[in-house]
């Protein structure tokens, strides 16, 4: 390379870093920025050619129209209910299992830890077709509980991975000393394990809810009644209407997407930690 002083090389290095950061961010954020801009501009501007890139004025008309003329609030509520149910089911099954995998040596332990690779080999359709038939027979189609159960099934490996990380972080010596002073297994779990892994459990709660929130396939398969549709199905159904009002649809997309997007700013450390330890 050229003969540069150490100081010059430092500045060059800084400049490259910021150049890369800015370029990467701008390029990757184009779709999202364009989506947001299109949802807040006046409708007549959406179909102008050439397209206007900066909106002439900012308006929330599309959002108002969405809430007034469609069943968006109903979809939102349905999504929320299903996500909470799925989260409760997942946590109550994954927490004991993750704890067992980190603390105890038992028959079949390695199958539980390799669960994700095994489960993701099954195509969703392969599960979907028979599940649809079984659920229709026992009345779990068009049921929020039925949908939440399917979300539980595919959120489980993910929840197991995250929870394992947090249980792993608790030093075995604390548990050992608690046992030496005579604490029972249940006391140890209640007084030591659960409080110490609480942040991890909260993170898992949020990620499981986000998984359910964005799930499309089973919601499409199991919920035929419009009144029971979750957000992904409800918003996608807006596109089938006689004239597609893109401003309205994008407003819906933004309300659906922005809350989970904001959460990742606070929570990605947990994911990174999870990925560093596990292979999922």
């Amino acid at each position: 390379m050229f003969d540069l002083t150490l100081r010059q090389r430092h500045y060059l290095e800084r400049a490259t870093t910021y150049g890369l950061v800015v370029g990467m961010t701008l390029l990757l954020m184009i779709p999202m920025v364009w989506g947001v801009l299109s949802s807040v501009r006046p409708s007549q501007e959406l179909f102008s050619w050439p397209p206007t890139f900066v909106p002439s004025s900012i308006t929330l008309d599309n959002y108002q129209l969405l809430l007034e003329t469609t069943e968006f609030t109903q979809y939102f509520l349905n999504s929320l209910v299903v996500a909470v149910l799925a989260m409760v089911f997942t946590l109550s099954i994954a927490t004991p299992a993750a704890y067992a995998v980190t603390r105890y040596e038992f028959l079949g332990r390695k199958y539980v830890t390799n669960l994700s690779t095994i489960i993701y080999m099954f195509p969703l359709v392969l599960l979907g077709i028979p599940l649809f038939v079984i659920f229709s027979q026992i009345g779990l189609t068009n049921s929020r509980i039925g949908l939440a159960l399917t979300h539980t099934a595919f959120a489980l490996p993910f929840a197991l991975m995250l929870l394992r990380v947090f249980f792993n972080d608790i030093s075995p010596t604390i548990v050992e000393s608690a046992r030496l002073v005579g604490a029972s297994r249940i006391t140890i779990i209640r007084k030591i394990i659960l409080p110490l892994s609480l942040p991890g459990i909260v993170a898992t709660v949020i990620f499981v809810m986000a998984l359910s929130w964005k799930e499309y396939f089973f919601a499409l398969l199991l919920m035929n009644e419009n009144a029971l549709s979750t957000l992904p199905i409800g918003i996608a159904s807006l596109i089938g209407m006689s004239t597609t009002n893109w401003g309205l649809i994008l407003a819906g997309v933004m309300i659906m997407s922005l809350p989970p997007m904001v959460l990742i700013f606070f929570l990605y450390d947990y994911l990174l930690e999870g990925f560093a330890v596990s292979t999922l």
Binding site: K214, P232, L250, V253, S257, M261, L263
Partner: peptide, 13 residues
Amino acid sequence: SPYMIPIVGIVLI
């Protein structure tokens, strides 16, 4: 952040 956007939203955008 795209990790958290529902696929429906991504495809529609």
